[in-house]
């Protein structure tokens, strides 16, 4: 049931949100250069939820930055067919001088949304992550989990800000829930799935937690480390109970294998 996808099924270009073709990325020059990604091919369909899995330091953040357009690949092509992607960084990365509500408003402000509209929208989004009461608090007055939720609301606001061209959405998330306690993480995962279903935006979700990847994603993509390459993909959409556990086991085993080849090298 968890068959490996050797080749991505043929897709018309219109249904592709992101396509990476033979992407290389290295940092620095000369002998000190670090190759983070080498020959990565990846496709995310419109409205698809893809989880990117890999050990620490394998280049997940680097890949996400390339898709977000925050970095240029050293070689290869990164093509997106969506509105400007919304990014949720590995840390909450809130602007410390703005209140939570202002942080959420910022992308709308940059998109030129009128003040009363963006106030309303921001409080709607804060409501969504259940933080309406703390809208006037500054980031340092919030707990880590609350900050992460504000960051989620801000990322969603930025999809709204970019959505006026009617282009489909793309949400890039870099281990957004890694720093949260297990219960809050469960709550936010459910929230994220609800939002994803409601908006139909494509999601590229980075994690190093296999269970999270299987639970959330329609497809799990495993990256190897140093240099990062796509090792294997698993379709995991709609798996329940025993099937889900089996998929987690299989992916875990493969991940362990990938990591141990590293120790040998």
């Amino acid at each position: 049931m968890t068959a490996t996808l050797e080749i991505a099924p043929p897709q018309s270009p219109a249904s592709v949100a992101v396509r990476l073709t033979d992407v290389h990325k290295s940092f620095g020059h000369g002998p000190q250069a670090v190759t983070a990604l080498e020959g990565v091919d990846l496709r995310v369909g419109l409205g698809e939820f893809v989880c990117l899995l890999g050990a620490s330091g394998c280049g997940k953040t680097t890949l996400l930055n390339l898709v977000a357009g925050l970095d240029e690949p050293s070689a290869g092509d990164v093509v997106t067919h969506t509105a400007r992607p919304a990014v949720m960084f590995q840390e909450a990365a809130l602007l410390p001088w703005l209140t939570a509500a202002r942080n959420v408003e910022l992308p709308l402000r940059l998109a030129g949304v009128r003040r009363d509209r963006r106030r309303a929208k921001a409080s709607e989004l804060l409501e969504l992550v259940r933080l309406r009461e703390v809208g006037d608090k500054r980031p340092h007055e919030l707990s880590g989990g609350m900050r992460q939720r504000v960051a989620l609301a801000r990322a969603l606001a930025s999809t709204l800000g970019a959505a006026d061209e009617d282009a489909p959405g793309l949400l890039l998330m870099d281990e957004p829930f890694a720093a949260l306690d297990a219960i809050t993480r469960d709550v936010l995962q459910a929230e994220l799935l609800r939002i994803w279903r409601a908006t139909g935006t494509a999601v590229l979700f980075v994690t190093h937690d296999v269970r999270e990847a299987v639970r959330l994603g329609q497809r799990v993509v495993l990256l190897s480390s140093r240099p990062g390459r796509v090792v294997q993909e698993w379709p995991v959409d709609g798996l329940r109970g025993a099937e889900e556990l089996a998929a987690v086991e299989e992916i875990n085993a493969r991940l362990r294998e990938v990591i141990s080849t590293h120790a040998a090298a």
């Binding site: 930055n65 925050l70 400007r84 602007l95």
Partner: peptide
């Protein structure tokens, strides 16, 4: 990270 946030937010 902050300038990146700015760029990501458009």
């Amino acid at each position: 990270i902050l300038p990146r946030v700015g760029a990501a937010l458009g």
